[in-house]
């Protein structure tokens, strides 16, 4: 855009009154009102209008000149005013002004009413121009007849709205979900720790071994053969964990593959030594000296704990 030629300040002052009107016209390109249907409104209805405002570019709407939401008259409220700045294009600054009114007029017959024009101000830093969103008229309709025709009285009020109950369905559903979650967590935990019947899982050989050892070494049934069976149960668990038979000379490989068992390495070596005495040396007394039945029991429980990660 070409800048307007500068005039001497004095001349401008002289000419200002002459040009003021024309200048304002030139700087306000358009104010277009977009309105809903102009009829069929009843008391308490809201009416939403929007106005497209186009100004010459340096001019901007003065936000302070926008009306504030308030009661405009005894029957008309301005509920909401929202200005969308749609930016400058081709030297034209565009705005969309959204207006929401609410009418509380109680007509006896269809009646035409006016939404008043809204004055706005635009400025480009120094100069100020006035523009206005045009007024708009609409028809309001009555809600009730003037004289009751169907027997009833015109003064019969609509009934009260009953106080609502607090909705509990959502809370109940959430409670159900939480309880199911807790049950699921408990089941998974039982599975993971090998509680109860879930202790017989194939992937928990030491849990099974611990049950077997506990059963074999119970004080009432304890005997040399039972001690042997307890050791065998533990060896089966080692075999199942390693996926192959584990002998004393395989232990370094076993601990390398399963580092979690490292803390119990000393006891495990004693277990294998005891087994060697019992099964190959045929010397139960020496075996029991190497690893007493209570120690076997304790070792079985420690191995189970290591296996399920709770050691």
């Amino acid at each position: 855009m070409r800048a307007p030629p500068r005039l001497p300040a004095g001349l401008l002052l002289l000419l200002a009154p002459l040009f003021a009107g024309a200048a304002a016209q030139a700087q306000v390109r358009a104010v277009d009102l977009y309105a809903p249907r102009p009829f069929g409104y009843t008391i308490g209805d809201t009416i939403e209008l929007s106005a497209e405002i186009a100004l010459d570019a340096p001019f901007r709407l003065d936000p302070a000149s926008l009306p504030r939401p308030r009661a405009l008259s005894y029957w008309l409220d301005l509920r909401d005013v929202r200005l969308d700045d749609r930016g400058v294009a081709d030297g034209v600054q565009r705005y969309t002004l959204h207006l929401a009114y609410q009418t509380f007029y109680a007509p006896l017959e269809p009646k035409r009413l006016d939404l008043p024009a809204l004055p706005l101000t635009a400025a480009d830093g120094g100069r100020r121009i006035e523009l206005s969103v045009p007024s708009w008229s609409f028809l309001m309709s009555p809600l009730r007849e003037i004289v009751a025709s169907a027997g009833g009285t015109t003064m019969a009020l609509r009934p009260d709205m009953a106080p609502p109950r607090i909705a509990t369905a959502g809370t109940l559903r959430h409670l159900g979900v939480a309880l199911i979650g807790a049950l699921l967590a408990l089941l998974l935990l039982a599975w993971h720790l090998g509680w109860g019947p879930l202790g017989r899982r194939r992937t928990r050989p030491f849990a099974r071994a611990a049950r077997a050892v506990t059963a074999e070494l119970a004080p009432s049934t304890s005997s040399p053969p039972a001690y042997g069976r307890a050791l065998v149960a533990l060896h089966r668990a080692f075999d199942a964990t390693a996926g192959a038979g584990v002998f004393a000379e395989d232990l370094p490989g076993f601990f390398a593959a399963h580092p979690a068992f490292a803390p119990v390495e000393g006891e495990v070596r004693r277990l294998f030594a005891a087994s060697r005495r019992l099964f190959f040396g045929e010397d139960p007394a020496a075996a029991a000296r190497e690893l007493a039945p209570e120690d076997v029991l304790a070792l079985a429980r420690r191995l189970r704990a290591v296996e399920r990660g709770s050691a």
Binding site: T42, I43, G44, A106, L143, R144, T154, L157, R158, M161
Partner: peptide, 14 residues
């Protein structure tokens, strides 16, 4: 709230 509209209309005419 239609009931409020209706009763407001009554109050207005009252």
């Amino acid at each position: 709230l239609w009931d409020a509209k209706y009763n407001l209309d009554i109050a207005m005419r009252l």
